[in-house]
Write a protein that binds this DNA or RNA. Structure first.
Lengths: 355, 355
DNA sequence: TTGTATGCGTTATCAA
DNA sequence: TTGATAACGCATACAA
């Protein structure tokens, strides 16, 4: 029945000092205006009584909390969980505690979580995860964040700079452009792209950089070879199946139908899709990269040992998590700061030099 | 300069009602003893003033919060992030918000986080992740949880039932025993085990079930072929290198040295270690499963498409997250409830039937 | 350096 | 059904 909560008043009484003195002795704030002897007495009393300060009461009295909100689409996705690890590490350094929301890409839940963090008086909110091409949803979220910031909260995002807050901007276009150049250097000319959802901005940017770069090199991408699909492993699998069914991907040397020459390489806009595509290729009896080369994006750490090793674009996800945390916590700026982050092309065995 | 916080008093004044009425109208608690007309007026005033209830003040007045603490070793690890996704989903259903700590396997930080959650007056704490064979650390954590529970908090764990709280117990031994039986059925007799850290209880249990089952089948495991290593991809890689260097794993048909017959299959106590082992085998020019079969544990979703597909033991990680959440939130029991969860052996191409 | 008293924003108790 | 008013547990301005 020790459910009786021990309060600071109890500690003060036990130590024979006033509430104020007990408070000062225990939080040990800037101006430590408490005699060492008393201080000891208070600390001893607190220990004796197993006193545990009530963070909620402190938050109310101080007018600020120690919480940091983190919104991800899906914490089980390695992309987000790696960012989250960077965020938790940075938050711990800042003495903050991370409150996590995994919203399953539901705009309504994102909004609800921002409002929840507003109620919790969280110090800052971090929105990780690419936006969709849904102006209404983006504007609603942006508005909620404006409101939140107007009330003193910090906010930052990773992905596209669409929310009006400090953002770690992933340079998707330049990264895929560079990938194209390097694949070109290895002799690849004819590509297909597993493009993800049309409305998915990250997917779109990756496709766009890829396409633009191919245009620049004078070997434009055939629009028929851009396959929209889900941003998931299954999406990659099914899109690859389509390519195979249409005969644009098949046994090497077999100019099997489709529109002219067969595709030499398939670019999936993320790694898990690329892995799905590999699985589909194998299921169809094709060899990767013998029959078709495959490249992805993200360099998910768990996938670094797959066979054949996957050509991809590395993003420093944990660092990104740390960066966005610092942005969210930085003193309020008038104009949103944009911190660009480049991807690094990693050529591996899934796209060997073409003979 | 709308930094002026709108309080419930403001809403009450704006609506021309008392503070009490405003409170009742807005939280809409069980006994809705407020006239619809007034209620509307209050809600309208709240909306007009963009009122946002202060969760900390509510927590203090109500005497309970809406927070749920989750401790994982490493949120970037797919094992934990998948459990975390189950926890966040269940927590949302319960109207709770998840506070996340990624402790990097640091016992001190685990303890600190429990105390932090105690200060936050969190409703419950979930400890995910296997214990180490460190009695002092386990006891300290158990004590902290006892203290926490004595103050009204809920607590639950996943892994070993060593913390004195409700636990989702992973039946590691029976799972690996079943794996052995099935591999036996496919003709395997001579195994090596990449065993993880000796003090790691989960690793130990998996090894133990494996070994015991082999004993029962009359084909005991050679102790020299149990390689301690880190519980990581690199640990698996290095342990496999050792086996190769010692000549107990090598080209099929090449009875190359070592102690007698070469190893037919290598069991790694988790999937990422198994993948590391595969990488080491390939780096040494060996074929999997041609030269050596490999099996893992966990059935990490991101790894389901690797080649060759990995024989492993599936754990319903997201469900486990949901289950442990329910345990943590369930009304206080005297004796710790133990909920066993079985793994399901999934035979795949990395351990084909032996000729 | 210490103590007193007030406020933080809400809920809940008690009268009206 | 509504309204004063007292908690809730702590920090802090002000006084001593």
């Amino acid at each position: 029945m020790s459910d009786m909560t021990v309060t600071l008043s109890d500690v003060a009484r036990e130590a024979g000092v006033s509430l104020a003195t007990a408070s000062r002795a225990i939080n040990g704030s800037a101006n430590r205006t408490v005699r060492p002897e008393l201080r000891e007495r208070v600390l001893a009393a607190a220990a004796r009584l197993r006193y545990s300060p009530d963070a909620n009461a402190q938050a109310m009295a101080r007018g600020r909390t120690t919480a940091l909100g983190l919104i991800v689409h899906d914490i089980a996705d390695p992309y987000f969980s790696t960012i989250a690890s960077g965020v938790t590490a940075a938050a711990e350094r800042a003495g903050l505690v991370v409150t996590l929301a995994s919203t399953d890409r539901d705009a309504g839940r994102e909004l609800a979580f921002v409002e929840l963090m507003q109620r919790q008086r969280a110090r800052a909110i971090i929105v990780a995860g690419g936006r969709h091409d849904d102006d209404a949803a983006n504007r609603a979220l942006a508005d909620a964040l404006v409101e939140y910031r107007s009330r003193g909260g910090g906010a930052a995002a990773v992905g596209q700079p669409l929310l009006g807050v400090d953002t770690v901007v992933i340079e998707n276009r330049s990264a895929t452009a560079e990938l194209v150049r390097q694949l070109h250097g290895r002799g690849y000319r004819r590509f297909a792209v597993l493009a993800g959802p049309t409305a998915h901005l990250t997917a779109h940017e990756r496709l766009d950089g890829f396409r633009t770069s191919l245009d620049d090199l004078g070997t434009p991408l055939d629009p028929d070879l851009v396959i929209p699909c889900a941003f998931t492993r299954d999406g990659g699998y099914e899109a690859m199946e389509q390519l195979i069914a249409r005969g644009v991907v098949g046994r090497a040397g077999t100019g099997s139908g489709g529109s002219g020459q067969p595709v030499e390489a398939v670019f999936a806009v993320n790694d898990v899709m690329a892995v799905g595509a590999m699985a589909a290729a194998r299921a169809a009896g094709l060899d990767v990269p013998g029959d078709v080369a495959i490249a992805g994006f993200d360099d998910i750490i768990t996938l670094r040992d797959i066979t054949p090793s996957l050509t991809t674009i590395r993003l420093p996800l944990a660092d990104i998590g740390a960066m966005v945390t610092e942005l969210a916590l930085a003193p309020d700026n008038d104009a949103p700061r944009l911190v660009p982050v480049d991807g690094e092309v990693i050529l591996r065995d899934s796209t060997p030099p073409l003979a």
